[in-house]
Design a protein around this nucleic acid. Structure first.
Lengths: 220, 220, 220, 220
DNA sequence: CATGAATGAGTATTCATTCAT
DNA sequence: CATGAATGAATACTCATTCAT
């Protein structure tokens, strides 16, 4: 195909060749994205049981068979979806150090997490749902969730340790024990909010959580 | 059949009638319990997808049709299971006040929760699994989980408020904001531990959490 | 693409034109052969169910769509394959008369058949498989197999008749009745050997068969 | 049905338990037989590819799902069918010794086989078809076919050996080498006749085969 | 009361085929 | 000419549910 284009366009062949290929590839990539987005939407709304390959195809505006055609199996589709969702989650899991103090950095992360609860993306919700279902142990996502947790804990412990070296954090604090409590506090809030967003004042809960974090870093 | 026989045997009807009925009712109750226990086991091990009415019957040592016969539909069986699991969970959700101080009461509850992670019951695991799947909103369990959370938060706030009236808890603390942070901390730890029990030191994390709770109750 | 290049390079058109076309035709013929060979391989290994148009293309080292592009439909591909396999089989079905005596000619043919069992070609195996499946009557190959049998019988009868005219074969033998027995003996041995090559001594069986054939030609 | 009868016949209550069960079991057994018969019919006519679980159910006069319900998978259904067909085939494969002479016994068997070609049962045709398809090596029937062949060869060798001990068969004949030739002759005739019943005179071919067999047993 | 036979709807998956590039 | 994107029909298999015994 690139040859055809080059044959036609003549001169600027060097630039044209790629687009021709990209057209097919683009079509494919675009359709794949659409399918994954559709799958995320469906999972976010109906759980992974509510997702069928046929529905994914139709939700994305294609035929019933396309999702199967691309991903081969439902498991593969879910795997791809998890990959995408995990990448999105990972991006925020261990953010680059901002250079602010430890307390500020941790509290900023906490606010970011809860903000994600208020304006969730389909992919984010799908990740939560899949992660939750993975608790049954049936899924391969279990490992991914565990890794994400571990990564966030490691980042937390590092921030706390740095705060100690900077003299901001009380020396008696054990960064390694601190981390799971911190991660737990956030996860627990997120899960509560996900189950019943209106049942309590999320803003106040975040503020209270920040109070806890600052106390845990500095008080004895 | 045994009823038929006993009905027919007539004679000592006055004496026989009640026991016979109780025997029937007991048998029924016993079989139902066995079915629910089997369902809990299956869900705990294979997730809610792995549960079929036929398998429940066989897992319980009965025929393939019995679960349908008793519960009528799969939805009804799951509802009954949720009910049972919820009852078990509720029992520990808002424990009777022990009379100890607020900090001690909350920390004791925290230790109890994490203990539950270490020695889980089938019903408990089934509840976690169903609750997790309920996040998708597809299930009717969502409401139950939310109610459980709410109840635990209410209990927490009450304990904190009582602590303030007793002078043990710092007056500046807002019990209503405190509660979701407390519940979140526990839920988050439980979920982390459920996903990867060996990934971190649960005991140390619990100790650290107690430190946080005591600080949040008393420090400024 | 190389053709395009050649088309474009123009210049020596008179000389280039024909070769270019021949190259095209050759390429096509070569690709078709490769596709048919790939199909034969797949059928020989996995039965006709294991053959898909896409797999044939890939097995041959081309794209998934090429087999469809060339043959139009699966039926057409199988037809072409059968044609090719039949041609190969026919070549040995009624070999040119060697000029040896009838007994020697028939025994030589028998040895050749059994040799084919030991070193089968993909095309040969595909023919056996397709022919076997054709027994159900679903395929159009049934006729081809029958024709092949008929042709071999005709050749056999002719060899026997010639043997009678040469005085080598006993006059009482009916060539037309002799033929199906001869063909049956060979087919039956081939099939037995194909089903379980190690279950009996093929060499001894061939020797015994030769004894039968010589006796049937000469003894009373 | 039998229950109805017995219900009507009254009296013999002690006999009641079993029949009730038998009715269910009978229903099942009858339906299973009907399904297998339907499957045999379909395979005989359309080959194993033409057999669908749904079609089997409908052909048998039941629902589309019943075959799956009973046999669990298509492979299992085919296995059951093979079992049944093999049992039928085995029954004639190594018949009880008739006490007649070796030649008579073998020729009688040959006539029986060819007779089976003229009046085939669905199960018999299904066996031939499945056996033929098994040549591709994909099926598990390959082993069954091989075993059937081996058994027939063993019976043949035994008959020949006994004939030698009786002085009817020439001592120089090797029973073990004789057997595959004999079995091959029959199989080959059967296959030729199956492919094209009208293409040659089966009766004459059988007579000629008998001539071969008698010669092979007695002539030098 | 209890069993299990029978049904049929739903779903994943395969694959020939059509069509755009 | 060649690739591969997209479709849709066919089919194996699962399972809740109904019904006969």
């Amino acid at each position: 195909m690139s040859t055809h284009d080059e044959d036609r366009t003549g001169g600027a062949g060097a630039l044209r060749g790629a687009p021709a290929r990209r057209t097919q590839a683009e079509r494919r990539a675009r359709a794949e994205s659409a399918l994954i987005a559709a799958a995320a939407r469906l999972i976010a709304e109906h759980g992974s049981t509510g997702v069928t390959l046929a529905r994914v195809g139709e939700e994305a505006g294609f035929s019933r068979g396309l999702a199967t055609h691309y991903f081969g199996s439902k498991a593969a589709l879910l795997a791809r979806l998890q990959e995408a969702a995990l990448a999105e989650a990972m991006a925020s899991a261990a953010p680059a150090r901002s250079g602010a103090g430890a307390a500020e950095e941790l509290c900023g992360f906490a606010r970011g997490c809860l903000e994600g609860v208020r304006n969730p993306t389909d992919l984010g919700r799908a990740f939560v749902v899949l992660g939750a279902e993975a608790l049954a142990g049936a899924s391969e996502l279990t490992g991914a969730v565990a890794e994400l947790d571990a990564r966030t804990r490691a980042w937390t412990a590092e921030v706390v340790g740095q705060g100690q070296r900077d003299g901001e954090v009380r020396p008696g604090v054990d960064p390694v024990a601190f981390a799971p409590a911190f991660v737990g506090l956030l996860k627990g809030l997120v899960v509560q909010a996900a189950a019943a967003p209106e049942a309590f004042d999320v803003g106040a809960a975040v503020a209270e959580s920040e109070r806890w974090i600052r106390l845990a870093l500095t008080a004895g």
